[in-house]
Design a protein around this nucleic acid. Structure first.
Lengths: 132, 132
DNA sequence: GTCTATGCAAAGAGTTTGCAGATGT
DNA sequence: ACATCTGCAAACTCTTTGCATAGAC
C-alpha cells in the first residue's frame, strides 16, 4: 500500500474546503489555490480532491449538470440546489431521519439498502427573500 | 416554436425504452437501435433521448460514475444501484411517501423544497440470493 | 416546398493519466 | 536514497453541435 506523503498543495486544498461553504467545483478550487501556488495544475487539484474524498476527508457531490462539487464538511448532510440562483446550500438532518429514509426505502424494495444520495431542488433563503 | 416531426429512429428509441427494464446508457440504446438502423449515429440517439426527456416521455437518471442512464417509465420512482453487480433496479414508493421526504427536508431547511432526486445504494434481490 | 431530423465528423466540457523532475520522509 | 507528489500536456469519456442531405407534412 502506498504511504501518503504530505504536500503543501493538498494541505491548501483541504484547508480551503474546510473553510468555505461554497461547495466549489474542481475548477473553483483550482482558481483559489492558484493564488497561493501560481503553478499548480488542474491535474494536481483533481488528484488531491479524489484523494481527500477517498480518505473520507471531503465529500464529492455529483450534480446532474456540469462538474461535480466538493464539500469539506464530512458530517452526513444533504444539499439543495436553488432553482433560482443555481447555488448549493446545506441541509442538515438528524441521523435518525436519514436512517428513516433508508428504512422507508428498504420496506419498498426486494433487497437491502445501505445508504443513499439525495439532491434536493428548491429555493434558497436568499432567493425566497429577494425574488427577482 | 419548433413543431415535432415523426421519425422512425425516435419511435424505435422510445419503444426500446418503454419495453426494457435495464435502465440503459445512451451507448446501450445506440447499440440496440443500431440493429434496426445500422447507420444511426450516436448524436441522433442523444438528441432523441434528450427530446424524450424534455417532453416527459422518458427520465434521465444521472449517476455519479460514467454516463447517465435512461428510463422509459415516467411514473415517479427511485432507483437502487447494486453495490455488488452495479445494476440499476427500480424502487417504487407511494406518492405520499415521496412527498413526506420533501416535507421532512423542508422542515430542516430555511427555504422551500420543490422536489428531489435520490439514488439508493444497496444489494439487489438477485445478489442477495447469490452472494459471490 | 418548407421545415425538421438525420448522419457524420468535429468540437466541447470535465476528468484522468504518463512521464520527467521536484519534494517529503 | 527512495517513494510519493507535482506540473505539464496529451489522452480519454461522455455529450453536444454545425452542416449538408434525407425525410415528414
Amino acid at each position: 500500500m502506498a504511504t501518503l506523503k504530505y504536500s503543501r498543495q493538498r494541505a491548501s486544498i483541504k484547508e480551503y474546503l474546510m473553510q468555505t461553504h461554497e461547495h466549489p467545483t474542481a475548477d473553483t478550487v483550482y482558481l483559489h489555490v492558484k493564488k497561493e501556488f501560481p503553478h499548480i495544475s488542474l491535474g494536481t487539484v483533481y488528484r488531491n480532491l479524489n484523494l481527500l474524498a477517498d480518505m473520507g476527508e471531503a465529500v464529492k457531490i455529483p450534480t446532474p449538470d456540469g462538474g461535480d462539487r466538493f464539500d469539506g464538511d464530512t458530517h452526513p448532510h444533504y444539499h439543495v440546489i436553488c432553482t433560482s440562483c443555481g447555488g448549493v446550500s446545506d441541509l442538515m438532518m438528524d441521523k435518525e431521519h436519514i436512517r428513516s429514509i433508508n428504512e422507508l426505502a428498504e420496506a419498498n424494495f426486494d433487497g437491502t439498502i445501505e445508504h443513499h444520495n439525495t439532491l434536493f431542488y428548491g429555493t434558497c433563503a436568499k432567493c425566497c427573500r429577494n425574488p427577482h
